[in-house]
Amino acid sequence: MAIFSVYVVNKAGGLIYQLDSYAPRAEAEKTFSYPLDLLLKLHDERVLVAFGQRDGIRVGHAVLAINGMDVNGKYTADGKEVLEYLSNPTNYPVSIRFGRPRLTSNEKLMLASMFHSLFAIGSQLSPEQGSSGIEILETDTFKLHCFQTLTGIKFVVLADPRQAGIDSLLRKIYEIYSDFALKNPFYSLEMPIRCELFDQNLKLALEVAEKAGTFGPGS
């Protein structure tokens, strides 16, 4: 049970606010000797596991740290290229931490505008008259809830499938947006929201919603 993240998308499909509110998930750290018995591949500027799923390391996981040193994209924190470093036998044994790749801010922007278009296509393909766009999208690991205001702003919340009370949370976020972003004289419409009060109140609302959400049967 949890609320994973919040996105605010303006009417043009641009991401104007994003918040992640979950702790890092289970990650697997293991010490390897040469040669590495995993196949790593460069994909989207990240080093991903392409083959050799084992011990909690799954295909699609990214290299997050080498010998305790964080990895940013395809480079380690001290500027060495990951694939090159791991292909050198003298660097072994080496301890590598794997986990689900975290989204970069660029990817978040891209995903937000992607959702904006999916929302529009969802209403175009409707078999019924007068349908809105996607309001709830269900998967086995999370549920995405979207609320579009009359002015075209979309509030998107990613939550656990069993988390209840998201509808009222979306209305509450709209209220917080109206009170602390729109009424802020320094905020310009359609632009990224950088308002401290908005941040504080949103985090508060998320906490309240997480605690108040009751669970249906099967949880």
């Binding site: 689900r100 309001e135 709830i136 086995d140 999370f142």
Partner: peptide, 19 residues
């Protein structure tokens, strides 16, 4: 890409106001 955890079945359903 959005999923915070590793997925098994992935996408299951979506709903709009009418369908």
């Amino acid at each position: 890409k959005m999923s915070p955890l590793d997925m098994k079945d992935g996408f299951l359903a979506f709903q709009t106001s009418r369908y």
